Simulated assay, not measured.
Amino acid sequence: MRRAFLATVAGALAGAALPARAVEPAAAAAAASGSDWQPVVLPQVRRLDLASARTGQRYRIFLSVPETAPPPGGHPVIYVLDANAAFPSIALMARTAARRSKVTGRAAPVVVGIGYASGEDYDSVARARDYTPVAGGKAGKGEGGADLFLDFIELELKPLIQSTAPVNPQRQALFGHSYGGLLTLHALFTRPAAFQTWIAASPSIWYAERYILSEMAGLKTARTLPASVLLTVGELEQAAAPPTAKPTDRAAVLAQKRMVDEVRDLAAQLEAHRQEYGLERVRSIELPRENHGSALFPALSRGMEFFLE
């Protein structure tokens, strides 16, 4: 699917770069400075700003529904956090999956993006509030709203989506990156029946002295369906700090967070207790040459593949 997705993007860009006919430089400059430029609209995408009674916040919800007929039971559905930044890419991946569904035999997914009405790619204040759990009974200022946010997804957003699109409630996935990956793990450990596929990309396991790991025992809660877990992390998200590094230097901070080691360790623990925790699949992927920011996009592609397998 990665090859098909890249080919689609390359073809689209190539088609956009080649004019239908030759244009003189002066004419091209005049056209570019006029009103010929048009805003780009993603096909098959709708948007809704939704106020939550649970959190008291406004969310920008993006929805992409395949044009293909739903399979028996409905389309699989993936909920994606940080949607202002992540949704355009994964919506295109879903369209590619839909076009290839007859070849692959995989049902095309509905994609639900959960973003913020501020319009920022990453609303740092809002995501710190919504994506962090209350750790050990304490929450930092402007943090600790994860459970209210998950209530919003379960009690307000999911019913809305189920009334809008033909989705399969037994084939639901949650994708989150960074703090969103932390939230994905918190939901997995405390609400293991909420989704069937969990994709935590570059999860902030380090948060609050790695409190999230103490919640793992919640996976022993009986679930109605087996779950699948994918963990991803960029190869460059952890490096040894030089001896002369100060504690506040970037290299020292990355070394202390142990992003790569934490993903490796968590994947090993989940695999070791896979049957006990009711996990059907556990997979971890280290993304070569990717840092914390760039790792989002290959994680989206790998996550989509993992979900549709």
Rank of each mutant, 00 (worst) to 15 (best):
Y207R: 01
A139V: 03
L270D: 06
D123V: 09
E290K: 00
V125Q: 13
E237K: 00
P76M: 08
L213H: 05
H186L: 07
G15F: 10
A107E: 00
Q269N: 14
Y131F: 03
Y79C: 09
T244C: 15
H177I: 02
S64A: 11
P166S: 02
D147Q: 12
Q38M: 06
L182V: 01
W37P: 05
D121W: 12
V134Y: 05
Y59E: 00
S284I: 05
M304T: 09
E309Y: 04
A28C: 04
R21H: 10
A17S: 10
L18D: 13
T232P: 01
L148F: 04
A193N: 14
E209C: 10
L81W: 10
V233S: 13
A252S: 04
A12G: 15
A295L: 08
R210A: 11
E24G: 14
F152L: 06
L6N: 00
A245I: 01
P109E: 05
T190Q: 06
K246Y: 09
A91N: 08
A27F: 07
R289W: 12
T55K: 12
G140Q: 10
M304Y: 10
P109L: 08
K141L: 14
L50Q: 05
V103Y: 15
A251L: 12
K220E: 15
D130Y: 00
L48W: 10
P159H: 04
L13S: 09
D130M: 09
A299S: 11
V111Y: 10
K257Q: 12
H186R: 01
K246C: 12
A252V: 08
A108N: 13
Q57R: 14
G218T: 08
F5D: 09
I205Y: 01
T221V: 03
S202A: 08
V41E: 14
D36R: 00
F306R: 03
P25T: 07
W206P: 08
R223M: 14
P159I: 02
G176P: 02
V65F: 03
A17Y: 02
L63T: 05
V110H: 05
G145M: 07
A222L: 05
V77T: 02
S52W: 07
K158D: 02
L231E: 06
R250L: 13
R46A: 15
